[in-house]
Design a protein around this nucleic acid. Structure first.
Lengths: 123, 123
DNA sequence: CTGTATCCTAGCGGATACTG
DNA sequence: CAGTATCCGCTAGGATACAG
């Protein structure tokens, strides 16, 4: 009935395709964390490097570039450092992402249970 | 998956870690679309295969397995077919994902502009 | 301080063919 | 009808070293 990917018809279809696009970008391993940090205040490059443990400089650079090219964060070089900050666009997206995070925290037991169940079934 | 980050402290931190976890699963290429379809009614395997063009059987199977093991959809074999349906958990998540999709549709021009800009800058 | 350059691994996404 | 089995390319993620 509903013709899918090429021609999304319903709002849910169109929204779901657009959603996947964003989810895949924001779903990159460190994107959300960086967005959450920048929500408080701007950060310098090395500041981010020091703050986020386990994140290599290479990946940090790439993640920042991606977020910047999507217009979610801004990059402003100053004499002392390069400052990254949330844009208005990024700031408007953040609540939605945080909402998913809160959903995940709230339903963690259900998800855990489901995974444990499917785990035990596969044995 | 990875044993996540360093001790998340604030609610935003905790939510952002949990968010990444979910985003990465739901961000799989066909997950949202399948969830959106099942939001209407249950579907059989081949019905999904026929409805979603461009999706191979192998990927469909894997996607369904993942969604099922996360408790977002249910799998019920009947004499005629195997029926996949949204669970309550999945149904509770869907609005949040759709919200992101709507955000994406609404801000598509901004994102486009940002990408075009960064594209032209790199030349 | 702010990155690049190289090299490597694991996993997603897909094409194609086969199975009970 | 509902999947598996094989094989393959691409890219995210990371370790390490070097550079302006």
């Amino acid at each position: 009935m509903s013709p899918v990917l090429p021609l999304p018809v319903t709002l849910a279809d169109r929204a779901s395709c657009a959603a996947t696009d964003i989810l895949r970008r924001v779903g990159e391993k460190w994107s959300v964390l960086i967005l959450a940090l920048l929500a408080d205040r701007p950060y310098g490059f090395n500041e981010l490097d020091r703050t986020v443990h386990g994140l290599s400089r290479r990946i940090l650079t790439r993640t920042l570039r991606t977020l910047e090219s999507d217009g979610l964060i801004s990059r402003r070089p100053t004499p002392e450092r390069v400052e990254y900050a949330l844009t208005d666009l990024g700031r408007s997206l953040l609540p939605l992402v945080i909402a998913i995070g809160e959903w995940a925290v709230e339903h963690a037991p259900d998800i855990e249970a489901a995974r444990a169940l499917s785990q035990s079934e596969s044995l």
